[in-house]
Computed example of a mutant assay.
Amino acid sequence: MPETEAPAPWEYTLYIPHDPRAVTVCRRTLRLILTMHGLIRLADTAELLATELVANAVLHTKGPAALRVRWSAGVLRIGAWDADPAPPDPPAPVESLAEAERGRGLALVRACADLWGWQPLAREGNRGKYVWCDLVAA
């Protein structure tokens, strides 16, 4: 029986302006990317995660942002870069989400992703942070 080849790694970055409408553009672009790569089964959860990450980048910072999507070795990494180097607020406990009016985004990311985190970035004089999460394809 012939061995099946693992899908080749790929990566996309979508730079977005500081505009709340960019969240919808990112969500729709992500679904298109996943559909093109045969990963539609991940699209609903990936859209939720990307929406939360990009919304945080747009709503809680003042500069541009970017959505980064990467597939490698069976893992989909979704991340949002923004120009604010301050760390994200820690996620609220899942139990408190029903009553919360704000602060649910990273709690949803923590609950739905296999892994998540953030890192400060400094490159070519630009500062900011990258908040990411992973979905493992089953």
Results as ranks from 00 to 15, higher is better:
residue 94 V to T: 12
residue 104 R to A: 12
residue 126 N to R: 15
residue 63 G to E: 07
residue 69 V to S: 09
residue 74 G to P: 12
residue 74 G to S: 11
residue 97 L to G: 10
residue 101 E to L: 12
residue 56 N to S: 09
residue 115 L to N: 12
residue 59 L to C: 09
residue 91 P to T: 00
residue 48 L to H: 07
residue 109 V to Y: 01
residue 100 A to F: 02
residue 103 G to W: 08
residue 87 P to R: 06
residue 79 G to T: 05
residue 51 T to A: 03
residue 122 A to D: 12
residue 56 N to G: 09
residue 86 A to P: 08
residue 69 V to N: 06
residue 77 R to N: 14
residue 129 K to I: 00
residue 119 Q to S: 10
residue 70 R to H: 12
residue 94 V to Q: 11
residue 97 L to T: 12
residue 75 V to M: 03
residue 47 E to C: 07
residue 98 A to F: 05
residue 65 A to V: 07
residue 113 A to T: 01
residue 127 R to T: 07
residue 126 N to I: 05
residue 67 L to F: 07
residue 49 L to C: 06
residue 73 A to F: 03
residue 129 K to A: 00
residue 84 D to G: 03
residue 117 G to E: 10
residue 69 V to P: 06
residue 64 P to C: 09
residue 81 W to R: 04
residue 51 T to I: 06
residue 70 R to M: 06
residue 66 A to Q: 09
residue 61 T to C: 04
residue 125 G to S: 11
residue 81 W to P: 02
residue 123 R to E: 14
residue 64 P to R: 15
residue 62 K to H: 13
residue 51 T to F: 01
residue 107 A to V: 07
residue 94 V to S: 14
residue 51 T to W: 01
residue 102 R to V: 04
residue 52 E to A: 09
residue 74 G to Y: 08
residue 130 Y to C: 01
residue 114 D to F: 00
residue 126 N to E: 13
residue 73 A to P: 02
residue 98 A to C: 01
residue 61 T to G: 03
residue 70 R to K: 14
residue 105 G to K: 02
residue 116 W to S: 05
residue 100 A to G: 02
residue 117 G to F: 07
residue 101 E to R: 13
residue 54 V to A: 04
residue 112 C to L: 15
residue 116 W to D: 05
residue 48 L to V: 15
residue 78 I to L: 15
residue 97 L to W: 11
residue 65 A to R: 10
residue 111 A to P: 06
residue 88 P to E: 00
residue 64 P to H: 14
residue 62 K to V: 14
residue 62 K to W: 12
residue 123 R to K: 13
residue 61 T to L: 01
residue 116 W to I: 01
residue 56 N to C: 09
residue 105 G to T: 10
residue 96 S to N: 03
residue 92 A to G: 11
residue 97 L to V: 13
residue 115 L to M: 08
residue 92 A to F: 04
residue 87 P to G: 05
residue 126 N to H: 14
residue 63 G to P: 10
residue 97 L to R: 03
residue 91 P to Y: 00
residue 78 I to K: 06
residue 61 T to H: 11
residue 94 V to R: 12
residue 114 D to V: 01
residue 104 R to P: 00
residue 84 D to A: 10
residue 124 E to V: 06
residue 44 D to I: 03
residue 115 L to S: 12
residue 67 L to V: 02
residue 53 L to M: 10
residue 96 S to G: 06
residue 58 V to G: 12
residue 125 G to C: 08
residue 72 S to W: 04
residue 73 A to L: 03
residue 97 L to N: 11
residue 90 P to T: 02
residue 55 A to P: 07
residue 103 G to H: 08
residue 95 E to R: 05
residue 124 E to A: 14
residue 98 A to N: 01
residue 99 E to F: 03
residue 96 S to F: 02
residue 89 D to Y: 02
residue 92 A to S: 13
residue 122 A to N: 08
residue 46 A to E: 03
residue 68 R to G: 10
residue 120 P to A: 11
residue 130 Y to L: 06
residue 101 E to W: 05
residue 106 L to S: 00
residue 46 A to F: 07
residue 81 W to V: 02
residue 127 R to Y: 08
residue 70 R to F: 01
residue 82 D to L: 06
residue 107 A to E: 08
residue 44 D to V: 09
residue 82 D to N: 15
residue 84 D to I: 07
residue 108 L to D: 00
residue 54 V to N: 02
residue 53 L to Q: 04
residue 62 K to C: 11
residue 50 A to T: 14
residue 107 A to R: 01
residue 71 W to F: 15
